[in-house]
Amino acid sequence: MIKLERVSYAYHDKFPAVSDVSLEINRGDKVAIIGANGCGKSTLLQIMGGLRYPSKGRFLFGGAEVSERSLREKGFLKLFRKSVGYVFQDSDIQLFSPTVLDELLYGPLQLDIGEEEAMARTLEVMQMLNIEHLKDRPSHMLSGGEKKKVAIGSILTMNPQVLLLDEPTNGLDPKTQSFLMELIFTLNEAGKTLIIGTHDLSLVEELQTNVAVLSEEHRLERMGEAKEILRDEDLLLKVNLIHEHIHRHDQVTHKHIHSHYLFHRH
């Protein structure tokens, strides 16, 4: 469904963000793109969302190349935007309509879905996300968790087949995080393809996704199942997702590999 062929991208033609990445994602897959800060996760997601275009290489969606040119064709633009939804890391950026209700209605109305159906979709999604009471509120008067729910809702009303989520759990409280996990599971069971950019290893462990590991050199270091990747401490150490640290237990000082979620073995 999604295919990246030797894709590279550099900001201002100076700073490489993605280097020579080839990747294939099938319908209904659940994939996490993991890597340290600045390794190019968001840029890669934005390329797959048709928001940035590769400086080198090709991005194919359903066999058709996604480029600035192809996205200017009305039919393809409609198919692509309807099929691929992008949830930004910063919800503030994403929410631009006057109220929560308008925000959720924006997508379906763009797709020329009738007003009645658009409203029905919106109400159902609001119910699922527990945000019905916020429907008349402007987005700047919402909490961080509420903004995230509205941002996800605004994409779900378009019923995309692929959901790209950039650091979805960042800055959320534990309750909202677990709600989000459950939602991701449910959507995947409903057949949606989910691609998540994160450095949160506990999220990867919990969702048991396929994992694409990006190195700090912006290359695809490895692709594999969550179990296999999370067991490979050398790989995680190499890409700076875990680190070695020294600490004390009573009188004993010792050194070991450490991650805030998975590894704290002695």
Binding site: R72, K74, L79, E124, N159, A190, G191
Partner: peptide, 25 residues
Amino acid sequence: MASRIPSFLLDRPLPGVFKQERGKV
């Protein structure tokens, strides 16, 4: 959660089937 998922989200359109529209955006 699963019980509350709206039915329209379970729709799976056929791959690559889209209405051909002429013209540029």
